[in-house]
């Protein structure tokens, strides 16, 4: 009987990336530490004066506690998406790391799974750091806020998988500008991140519901404000569905690209 294409050996690929991360952690952990501080300073101090409070799910919340969880959601997206686009592309295309791995007992499926799991892990690491930072300002309600950690993994897999799919189709590294310009940036702005979705015209609100970030923001915000209800399951289900679609597409795209 043939060996299965995916086994727990994918952890070996994940471990490789962790080893590299450990060598550079002092540099790598700075962005998630400093970025929320910059944002909170700019938006919390600078913009909040003009905005005041925001009406969210029936109650008024301060603008800072409105955007803090959105910043975490954006970071979940960025960490996994950039890891599985630029960083994975460098490993695949320039460093030929995947080629070397494929001459070992690892399968292509395991390599790609390990990469996506690593991207999601980076999301979790960044989320943990950011969560700690914003908690210092009393912007997160506990224990509900802790749910953001496992959520970071789910969101990381979703964005990592679609990132990996783009990696399987771009010809050059510059071409990542396209998905960033057409996919990531619109989400960054229009997923209920910096203003409530309800401020958009109805058609745009409906469109925004297709964005995975919309659901991720909704979840991080509800968790950090402590507003848990069963409707949130729909958002979780959407993210899960997004993973279930893009993960296999990423693997088959990579198979198409690398196996000749």
């Amino acid at each position: 009987m043939a060996s299965p294409r995916i086994s727990k050996r994918f952890v070996r690929v994940w471990q490789r990336n962790l080893t590299v991360y450990q060598k550079m952690w002092k540099i790598l952990f700075l962005p998630p530490l400093l970025e929320p501080l910059f944002y909170l300073l700019a938006f919390g101090v600078g913009l909040a004066v003009m905005v005041g409070g925001v009406y969210y799910r029936g109650s008024e919340v301060s603008y800072v506690s409105f955007i803090a969880p959105a910043l975490i959601a954006i970071n979940i997206m960025y960490n996994a998406f950039f890891e599985n686009t630029y960083a994975s592309f460098v490993r695949m295309y320039f460093q030929k790391t995947f080629d070397a791995m494929m001459a070992t007992p690892l399968s292509l499926e395991e390599i790609i799974t390990g990469e996506i799991m690593w991207g999601a892990t980076k999301s979790v690491i960044a989320t943990a750091i950011m969560l700690a930072v914003v908690s210092l300002f009393g912007l997160v309600k506990y224990p509900e806020g802790l749910l953001i950690i496992p959520l970071a993994f789910l969101g990381g897999v979703a964005f990592g998988a679609i990132g990996m799919f783009f990696t399987s189709i771009v010809k050059t590294i510059e071409m990542f500008n396209l998905p960033i310009f057409l996919f990531v940036t619109p989400m960054f702005l229009f997923s209920g991140t910096f203003f409530p979705l309800e401020n958009l015209p109805l058609w745009a609100q409906k469109l925004a519901l297709a964005f995975p970030l919309t659901h991720l923001v909704k979840l991080t915000r509800s968790f950090s404000l402590g507003l848990i209800d069963s409707a949130l399951l729909w958002s979780c289900a959407y993210l899960l569905l997004f993973c279930l679609i893009w993960f296999p597409l990423a693997i088959s795209g990579m198979r198409h690209r690398l196996i000749k």
Binding site: Q15, Q95, K96, A100, L106
Partner: peptide, 30 residues
Amino acid sequence: KSRIGVCQQDNNLDPDLTVLQNLEIFARYF
């Protein structure tokens, strides 16, 4: 694949790692 050793044409050593780590981490794949 676990019983063969392959020297590919490209020098696809892992540039993110040291000499020793290259061997160590490759051993982990096995």
